[in-house]
């Protein structure tokens, strides 16, 4: 009785909040047929937005992955003073508003920013250009890989690494042949999640991009523009692509949990 009530309540809540919006994305995107859906990608600005998003992710995700692995290695394998402070600082971007994340770069590299004049002199543009978008995205997606790996590596312990070392393996050999295979599923999920956030970041990128159509518009920004132009099919078509990415991300997450029997957090 209570059971049925609670399950119904949960499902109703989730349907209204999660399923309905997800369904509406695809429903609207295909409301005028598959043809129209495809047609919306023929637009050159849309194409540019997709390319920019892919490029940003291609720069940000590898960098944050390397960072995440480094951070996880030094935090999970070593004891040092200030470790908990380091963990807190790594998590910091999660607590900061995306708008503030963008703002800080504007204050650093914008016209009135710390390096603004110098950048102007040397004719380097960061804000309202690709570097700014990359930096803001990097800030926002900074913790994802590290957060995924730290608990995983702490839980696994160092026995296998120690075994490898006593068997004569060096640091890199141990990392690539012992550690990496052990954390690959967690790493995969961290990378995928980082990628999803990187491609979907809106607030921070919106502040630094300058919204120049065809040049500095990422997919989420492009969605906003299309939406404001009442091009709902176009907006939702692009949104459906990002939703698909989210669904794939969740699928991989479930796969990872199934493979490792390990639940995050």
């Amino acid at each position: 009785m209570v059971r049925a009530l609670l399950i119904t309540l949960s499902l109703a809540f989730l349907s209204a909040l999660l399923f309905a919006p997800l369904a509406v994305v695809f429903a609207t995107a295909f409301s005028e047929g598959v043809q129209a859906w495809f047609a919306s990608f023929a637009d050159s600005d849309t194409g540019a937005a997709i390319r920019l998003t892919l490029l940003t992710a291609a720069i940000v995700v590898p960098l944050n992955t390397v960072f995440g692995i480094c951070a996880a290695w030094c935090i999970a394998k070593f004891e040092f003073p200030g470790k908990s402070l380091l963990i807190t600082l790594i998590d910091l971007p999660l607590a900061v508003s995306p708008v503030v994340s963008g703002l800080v770069y504007v204050l650093l590299f914008g016209l009135q920013g710390w390096f603004g004049a110098w950048l102007m002199e040397h004719d380097i543009s960061i804000i309202f250009a690709l570097p700014g978008i990359v930096l803001a995205t990097m800030f926002v997606t900074f913790p994802y890989v590290a957060r995924e790996l730290i608990p995983l590596m702490q839980q696994q312990g160092d026995d296998e690494e120690e075994a490898a070392i006593t068997l004569g393996a060096g640091g890199w050999f141990t990392f690539f042949h012992v550690t990496l295979p052990r954390i690959r599923w967690g790493l995969l999920y961290g990378v995928i999640l980082c990628n999803a956030r990187a491609m979907g970041e809106f607030g921070a990128v919106s502040v630094v991009s300058g919204h120049i159509r065809g040049l500095t518009n990422t997919m989420p920004l492009h969605i906003e523009i299309l939406y404001q132009e009442y091009n709902f099919v176009g907006a939702f078509a692009v949104a459906s692509l990002l939703s698909l990415l989210a669904v794939v991300t969740l699928l991989i997450k479930s796969l990872v949990e199934w493979r490792t029997g390990y639940r995050r957090r």
Binding site: D159, E160, E162, A163, I165, T166, L167, G170, P181
Partner: peptide, 17 residues
């Protein structure tokens, strides 16, 4: 440890899974 050339068997085996 790498260069001592000893063989160590761990309590919980520590096999590469």
């Amino acid at each position: 440890a790498r260069d001592r050339g000893v063989g160590l068997v761990f309590q919980n085996y520590a096999l590469f899974r």
